[in-house]
Design a protein around this nucleic acid. Structure first.
Length: 644
DNA sequence: GGTTAGGTTTGG
């Protein structure tokens, strides 16, 4: 955890500290106690110049005053900060700032105790897993808690408001980028084109002697925050260029992904406001930036195309002055025979046994010219993204079989280049899991699968290829409206907050309702359950069930209905009762009559609905007539059925 | 502080 600057409002840090941390007061600090989940907060009343210890470690000492116990006898403590944190803190800590530390070590002071100071001191370092938060700059000397000025507030300029000759701060979504490469001058260079909701593009040319201080962009759609970028006019367009003090943060552009900045600077401001900006830009980008489909896998390559490959480096070799060989794999099998670059075994760096095991899965990528220097520096086992690899189909003169070659040509057009991905990268995490699942023994028996006819007939087509082919097919149903919206991945939509407008292109897997009558459901407002409306068959089953209860003669002929009963002539000899409901103690004409029926079949009920106004299927209990199962209609009127 | 590059692919 680097040193972070927080903003202060009324003495409270605005960006909340990790919730597991509890504040510890100075009085309760003791050597040997567990302070894992504690933090200490106070005002810096003294700071000493940054020095080096005998072993070269940077060392920075401050005195911290516990603002909650100003009156108590012990209200301050020495804090020793070591290493990189010392260097970082020395840059930003002044008398009067609020200092918060977690993950500290409490050690007894070997020296005499000064007035009012704690008998112990705190030790803080990156190695010890400490985290430091520094809140609010104070311009003057010590002042009372709660009246600090606010950390410098940054103003961000939308891309449509940029003016020549200014130095600005801005946010943008990466539309295009060239990963850092060695320029012909003294620096690394990275070209980044941004867009923002103003729909204005800005191409920035970023230079730095330190490759780590250039933005860590891994893919189009990443979001960046640039501080102190100079705006100039070039060829009639605004252009961004690094100025002194340029700093950047880069964020994954995926909606719903954690908002964690990728940065090289240990000290940066990042508050709730920034988090909100990133989340808003992600949602804007989701429907306004086309992110080139799913990343290609080796199993999905075709001859004559350019693609970005996320892979692991398993071997490398110098070929000649202007080209360098990288052997990589991504766990999938290229469906074509691949070119093997001839190199002497002694020139090949990499685990020999592993390379042999991977002989059917690893591919040779030849990188040229300006990429050689970077390729040479790569470590075996590292995870890479190689941008704009060219697949070339070629047939060797002395062989009949054609093969596919992978080239990373010289130059940086279209973002050609190589980038090392950290293990924390989500794509790397996914790749690692996949690589671990690959059965190498199995892959070594794949020689025969490798044979592919020259005319391009598929010898072995993996599921993934089939999937890709399906995705590439034209849609049968084409939405003619909303052409202005670009397509959004379903994953992005699932992670977004409603309401939003999207356009999708997707493969139909299933649909509901399968039958039209299922588009209406029965709903119970009490238990909130939904049930299918029974079709004719279901109703018949319910009627059969209720027919097992014989009509109860005691319930016949009451003041409000007259009953008729008969037994069917068929073998089943069902008893059927029909109760004609009276109106004003009078029976009505059939077309005005409401009747109740016990023991009827579906067919018989249909017939009755043709003749009589309303039919209610019922059954007898000991002392009353009751409706059937509520999933059956309780009232039939002509063709209309009423459900409970 | 200045230089580099200033998006638009394919030779090996």
């Amino acid at each position: 955890m680097p040193v972070q600057l927080l903003k202060i409002i009324k003495g409270q840090s605005e960006a909340p500290l990790p919730s597991h941390l509890q504040k510890e007061s100075l009085q309760h600090l003791q050597e040997g106690c567990d302070h894992t989940n504690k933090y200490i907060q106070g005002v810096v009343t003294l700071s000493y110049p940054l020095t080096k210890l005998r072993d070269g470690t940077d060392f920075f000492k401050i005195v911290l005053q516990d603002s909650d116990s100003l009156c108590s006898q012990i209200n301050s403590i020495n804090v020793f900060i070591y290493g990189k944190m010392a260097e970082d803190c020395a840059k930003i800590i002044r008398r009067g700032v609020i200092f918060i530390a977690a993950g500290f070590k409490v050690t007894k002071l070997p020296t005499a105790i000064e007035d009012g100071r704690h008998g112990c001191h705190l030790e803080v370092s990156e190695e010890a897993g400490s985290a430091i938060y520094v809140c609010g700059y104070s311009t003057g000397f010590f002042c009372c808690f709660g009246c600090f000025s606010v950390a410098p507030k940054y103003v961000y300029t939308p891309l449509n408001h940029l003016k020549d000759g200014t130095i600005v701060n801005l946010y943008g979504v990466v539309k295009f980028f060239k990963p850092p490469y060695v320029s012909k001058g003294t620096d690394y260079c990275s070209v980044v084109t941004l867009v923002d909701p103003s729909n204005v593009k800005l191409t920035c040319t970023l230079f730095s002697g330190n490759v780590d201080s250039l933005p860590k962009i891994y893919k189009v759609g990443d979001i960046v925050r640039f501080h102190r970028i100079k705006i100039r006019e070039y060829n009639g367009q605004m252009q961004g260029i690094t100025s002194a003090g340029f700093a950047s943060l880069t964020f994954d552009g995926t909606v719903g992904a954690p908002v964690v900045p990728r940065t090289s600077s240990k000290v940066y401001t990042f508050m709730d406001e920034e988090q909100k900006t990133i989340e808003e830009l992600r949602i804007w980008a989701a429907s306004n930036i086309s992110i080139s489909g799913p990343a290609a896998k080796l199993s999905g390559v075709q001859p004559m195309l350019f693609f970005d490959l996320t892979c692991q480096l398993v071997g490398k070799a110098k070929v000649d002055g202007s080209s360098f060989l990288l052997k990589v794999w991504d766990g999938t099998k290229c469906p074509y025979p691949t070119w093997k670059v001839p190199v002497e075994t002694k020139d090949l760096e990499g685990e020999k046994v592993f390379l042999h095991q991977l002989r059917n899965l690893a591919v040779d990528i030849l990188v040229y010219d300006n990429h050689v220097q970077l390729a040479e520096s790569l470590k075996i086992g590292s995870f890479l993204r190689i941008y704009s690899i060219h697949t070339k189909q070629a047939s060797a003169d002395n062989e009949d079989a054609s093969h596919i070659e992978f080239h990373l040509h010289g130059g940086t057009c279209y973002g050609r280049g190589i980038r090392v991905l950290p293990e924390s990268n989500p794509d790397v995490k996914e790749l690692k899991v996949f690589l671990e699942s690959v059965d190498l023994a199995d892959s070594q028996n794949m020689e025969s699968m490798c044979s592919m006819d020259i005319d391009g007939t598929f010898g072995s087509v993996t599921d993934l290829e089939l999937h890709l082919q399906r995705c590439q097919q034209l849609s049968v149903t084409v939405l003619t409206d909303h052409q202005d919206l670009s397509n959004t991945e379903l994953k992005t939509i699932a992670n977004s907050t409603a309401p939003q407008q999207y356009r999708i292109r997707a493969k139909l897997r299933t649909y509901k309702p399968q039958k039209l009558h299922q588009s209406v459901k029965l709903h119970c407002s009490k238990c909130n359950s939904l049930q299918e409306v029974p079709d004719g068959n279901d109703f018949d089953v319910i009627l059969h069930g209720s027919a097992r209860t014989a009509p109860n003669p005691e319930l016949h002929n009451t003041s409000w209905y007259e009953s008729v009963m008969w037994t069917t002539q068929d073998q089943k000899q069902r008893e059927i009762a029909i109760h004609f409901v009276k109106h004003d103690e009078m029976l009505q004409q059939p077309e005005d009559t409401l009747l109740m029926i016990e023991g009827g079949t579906l067919k018989e009920i249909w017939k009755l609905t043709k003749r009589f106004k309303c039919v209610i299927p019922v059954r007898s209990t000991e002392d009353d007539l009751e409706l059937l199962d509520l999933s059956a209609p309780f009232l039939l009127q002509g063709n209309v059925k009423y459900y409970g």
